[in-house]
Design a protein around this nucleic acid. Structure first.
Lengths: 258, 258
DNA sequence: AAGTTATTTGACCGATCGGTCAACTTCTTT
DNA sequence: AAAGAAGTTGACCGATCGGTCAAATAACTT
């Protein structure tokens, strides 16, 4: 695999890069000044959108700047004018994705109800997979091939986020509001199950025999994933299920623990 | 993304290819005769092993025949002598992987015990992720980018396999041996959760703060995944757990518990 | 030993890759 | 309206890509 992190022209440090909106001081031209947003801001967005499509389609290595430029409807030189290198463009796309991830609703808070919080979290993750499948695929591809760009995010932000949640789960368990579980692995499972509907949608569609995934498919996914997650936590499903198509009467009471 | 399916020289049909050990009648040279296995069979294996590594590292697009040949320790022309094109080599690697997948233990049979069968299945899937992570990654990458090569397998074999299992689950549910569940989505969940430890191991390691995944990590994974699966099926875990290494022996982090 | 087949290899080819550049047009500021 | 900054573009560059080829060698068969 080619080195994503700066090649010829970008004199960045050799270590992991910061992944923060591509610092402008690369080589020569470019707006440089932080003010630089007039006409070109639209072009940047066009390029980013095209790059997301092309990177998602075949991964970093298969994508070519020419194809991205073509998809964006402008000459290749234009793309390099705005983003410098292919690697920098890739980082910008990833940065965009992480921003979306970060701003997603965080339903798991200490004062929330465990069942509701987990149900809402699964729901939100499925919705992300449904609404931004390309983003999920690019992120999956990045992880799959070693997370050369995104590793700092994993080690700093994500790890801390998970351990925060683990502490909340511990407290809930101490209050006897749920079973004691291994939070890290629970999240691995939730992420894997929810994102599989974006990342590996071909497989899902092939097995279901459907050309496209529709609402009932995602509802079924929510239902079973929620059941698995709540089950592992010793919680009964809430009655007002988001995906609730079937009004299963039994187990109306929540949380029965020995 | 380059077209994996035959480019210049291979006059294959334009549709999905058969994915069955690369038919020999490509262009010119090559052993051609089915007998052709003397010295070169060793070379083929070396190339396949190297290709698995390189394809797993950065995906199809990032891999180059030169790098694969280099990893195999022989000149590039040699690789092309045995496999013709990069695409054919990729198909051979995938074919190898599917063979492993196919021959994996199939624990879910009509006369088995539901709890034991599901526990053993999760166990087997985790073991596959642990023992052949590169294979899992290559397959994940293939799915991620549209399954251009492997789609026939998904639509024929895999779909049939799942619907067979669904029928078994239905029967078990009818016999009141488990809850009625959506078998397809249950398998999506199991596959996703088990393979995430191979495919996205960087993420797992980053969150756990461990350099490599070891036995206790996989045991914890088995435990929680099994709990989720059995929970969704309304089954209690078997006492003789495969992953059972003590109820809560380790826990790298020590937290206060009431 | 001779002849045939299988294997190895370095040199080579056209296409495409990421990236550069200078000339040009369009904006924005004054 | 003048001038500088920002944006646009086709042509171009060296490196690498997948793949080919002919000539040399090794391995079998008789």
């Amino acid at each position: 695999m080619q080195n994503v992190v700066s090649k010829r022209t970008n004199p960045k440090a050799s270590g992991a890069i910061s992944l923060a909106a591509s610092k402008p001081g690369s080589t020569r031209k470019q707006p440089a000044s932080p003010s630089g947003n007039r006409v070109g801001q639209a072009a940047r967005q066009r390029i980013l959108a095209a790059a997301e499509r092309v990177f998602a389609e075949g991964g970093y290595g298969s994508a070519s700047t020419a194809r991205i430029a073509d998809a964006a409807g402008l000459p290749k030189a234009n793309l390099h004018y705005y983003f410098g290198t292919k690697g920098a463009l890739y980082e910008a796309v990833l940065s965009d994705i992480l921003e979306t991830w970060r701003s997603a609703a965080d339903t798991i808070t200490a004062d929330a109800d465990p069942t509701e919080a987990l149900t809402a979290y699964v729901d939100a993750k499925i919705e992300l997979s449904r609404r931004r499948p390309l983003a999920s695929k690019i992120f999956a591809n990045e992880l799959l091939h070693g997370a050369k760009v995104v590793r700092p995010y994993l080690q700093r932000e994500l790890r801390g986020w998970v351990s925060d949640k683990a502490r909340i789960f511990d407290r809930w368990a101490a209050q006897d509001r749920m079973k004691k579980i291994d939070a890290e692995h629970l999240f691995f499972g939730i992420w894997a199950m929810t994102q599989t509907y974006a990342d590996f949608d071909v497989q899902v569609r092939a097995v279901l025999g459907t050309r496209v995934l529709k609402d009932p498919d995602f509802d079924a996914a929510k239902r079973i994933i929620t059941a698995m997650v709540l089950g592992a936590c010793g919680l009964a499903p809430a009655e007002g299920q988001a995906a609730g198509k079937k009004a299963d009467g039994k187990k109306a009471k929540r949380r029965k623990r020995a």
